[in-house]
Each structure stands twice: as structure tokens, then as C-alpha cells.
Deep mutational scan, measured.
Amino acid sequence: TTEYTFTDDEEARRAIEELKKRGLTFRYEKHGTTWRVRVD
């Protein structure tokens, strides 16, 4: 499991789109302004 942290909404959304394109399994949660994206 790899975890990424983003504080920029645009950056987080781009990363999420990219992961979807690659067909990877991931989860994300947003805490205030911080996004945590975990890739299995």
C-alpha cells in the first residue's frame, strides 16, 4: 500500500483521475484541506 498526501485540490483530483485511468484500486479521504490517497 502506498499513501499519498495532497493539500491542493486540483493536484489531488488529477492524481485520482490518473489512478482511475490506470485501473488501480485506491481509496481516498479528505480531512479539511488535506487529501489522503491510498493505493493498494
Rank of each mutant, 00 (worst) to 15 (best):
T1H: 12
T1Y: 15
T1R: 09
T1I: 14
T1P: 12
T1G: 10
T1L: 10
T1Q: 11
T1F: 15
T1V: 14
T1E: 09
T1W: 15
T1K: 08
T2L: 13
T2H: 11
T2S: 07
T2N: 06
T2V: 14
T2Q: 10
T2M: 12
T2D: 05
T2K: 10
T2G: 05
E3M: 12
E3W: 15
E3K: 03
E3L: 13
E3S: 06
E3T: 13
E3R: 04
E3C: 15
Y4D: 00
Y4H: 04
Y4N: 02
Y4S: 02
Y4F: 10
Y4A: 02
T5S: 06
T5L: 13
T5F: 14
T5D: 04
T5E: 08
T5W: 14
T5A: 05
T5H: 07
T5Y: 14
T5M: 10
T5C: 13
T5P: 01
T5R: 07
T5Q: 07
T5G: 02
F6H: 01
F6C: 08
F6L: 02
F6M: 02
F6E: 00
F6K: 00
F6G: 02
F6P: 00
F6T: 02
F6I: 03
F6W: 03
F6R: 00
F6A: 00
T7M: 08
T7V: 07
T7K: 07
T7I: 07
T7G: 05
T7C: 13
T7N: 10
T7R: 06
T7Q: 09
T7S: 08
T7F: 13
T7P: 03
D8P: 02
D8N: 14
D8S: 14
D8K: 05
D8I: 05
D8L: 04
D8Q: 04
D8T: 13
D8R: 05
D8E: 05
D8M: 04
D8F: 04
D8H: 05
D9W: 15
D9T: 05
D9Y: 13
D9E: 14
D9S: 08
D9Q: 08
D9I: 11
D9K: 08
E10W: 09
E10K: 10
E10D: 12
E10R: 10
E11M: 11
E11Q: 11
E11F: 05
E11V: 09
E11W: 06
E11T: 13
E11A: 12
E11S: 14
E11I: 08
A12Q: 02
A12Y: 07
A12M: 13
A12F: 15
A12I: 04
A12D: 01
A12H: 02
A12L: 14
A12S: 02
R13D: 04
R13M: 14
R13Q: 09
R13F: 13
R13Y: 12
R13V: 07
R13L: 13
R14S: 08
R14K: 12
R14I: 09
R14E: 07
R14W: 07
R14A: 11
R14Y: 07
R14D: 06
A15F: 15
A15T: 09
A15V: 13
A15S: 04
A15H: 07
A15P: 00
A15L: 14
A15G: 04
A15K: 10
A15Q: 05
A15D: 00
I16C: 06
I16F: 05
I16E: 01
I16R: 01
I16S: 01
I16M: 13
I16D: 00
I16L: 07
I16P: 01
E17R: 13
E17Q: 11
E17W: 11
E17V: 08
E17H: 09
E17N: 10
E17S: 10
E17I: 10
E18V: 10
E18P: 00
E18Q: 10
E18L: 11
E18G: 07
E18S: 10
E18R: 07
E18K: 07
E18A: 10
L19K: 01
L19D: 00
L19G: 01
L19A: 04
L19S: 00
L19M: 07
L19W: 09
K20P: 00
K20N: 06
K20D: 04
K20A: 08
K20G: 05
K20E: 09
K20M: 12
K21V: 07
K21S: 09
K21L: 09
K21A: 12
K21C: 12
K21D: 05
K21Q: 08
K21H: 06
K21T: 08
K21I: 08
K21R: 13
R22P: 01
R22E: 05
R22M: 12
R22N: 07
R22A: 11
R22L: 13
R22G: 05
G23I: 01
G23M: 04
G23L: 03
G23S: 03
G23Q: 04
G23H: 05
G23Y: 03
G23F: 03
G23E: 03
G23C: 05
L24A: 10
L24F: 11
L24K: 06
L24V: 12
L24T: 04
L24S: 04
L24D: 03
L24I: 12
T25F: 12
T25G: 06
T25M: 10
T25H: 13
T25W: 13
T25K: 13
T25L: 10
T25R: 13
T25S: 13
T25E: 06
T25P: 08
F26I: 11
F26S: 01
F26D: 01
F26Y: 07
F26P: 05
F26R: 01
F26K: 00
F26H: 02
F26T: 03
F26N: 01
F26L: 06
R27L: 07
R27H: 14
R27D: 07
R27N: 09
R27T: 15
R27V: 14
R27W: 15
R27S: 15
R27I: 13
Y28H: 03
Y28F: 11
Y28E: 03
Y28D: 02
Y28K: 03
Y28G: 02
Y28P: 01
Y28S: 05
Y28C: 14
Y28V: 15
Y28Q: 03
Y28I: 15
E29H: 08
E29R: 08
E29Q: 08
E29F: 13
E29W: 15
E29M: 09
K30F: 05
K30H: 06
K30Q: 06
K30R: 10
K30A: 03
H31P: 01
H31T: 13
H31S: 11
H31N: 12
H31R: 10
H31V: 14
H31F: 12
H31M: 12
H31A: 08
G32R: 02
G32P: 00
G32M: 03
G32F: 03
G32Q: 04
T33S: 12
T33K: 10
T33W: 04
T33I: 09
T33L: 09
T33E: 12
T33V: 07
T33Y: 07
T33G: 14
T33N: 14
T34P: 00
T34M: 11
T34K: 06
T34S: 06
T34C: 14
T34L: 13
T34W: 08
T34Y: 11
T34Q: 08
T34A: 06
T34V: 14
W35A: 02
W35H: 06
W35Y: 05
W35D: 01
W35C: 08
W35G: 01
W35M: 04
W35N: 02
W35E: 01
R36A: 05
R36Q: 06
R36K: 13
R36V: 15
R36L: 15
R36M: 11
R36S: 07
R36D: 03
R36I: 15
R36N: 05
V37S: 00
V37C: 03
V37A: 00
V37L: 08
V37N: 00
V37K: 00
V37P: 02
V37I: 15
R38G: 03
R38P: 00
R38N: 07
R38W: 15
R38Q: 14
R38E: 13
R38V: 15
R38A: 09
R38T: 15
R38F: 15
V39I: 11
V39N: 00
V39P: 02
V39G: 00
V39Y: 03
V39E: 02
V39D: 01
V39K: 00
V39L: 06
V39R: 00
D40R: 10
D40L: 15
D40M: 14
D40G: 11
D40A: 11
D40I: 15
D40H: 12
D40T: 13
D40K: 09
D40E: 13
D40F: 15
D40C: 15
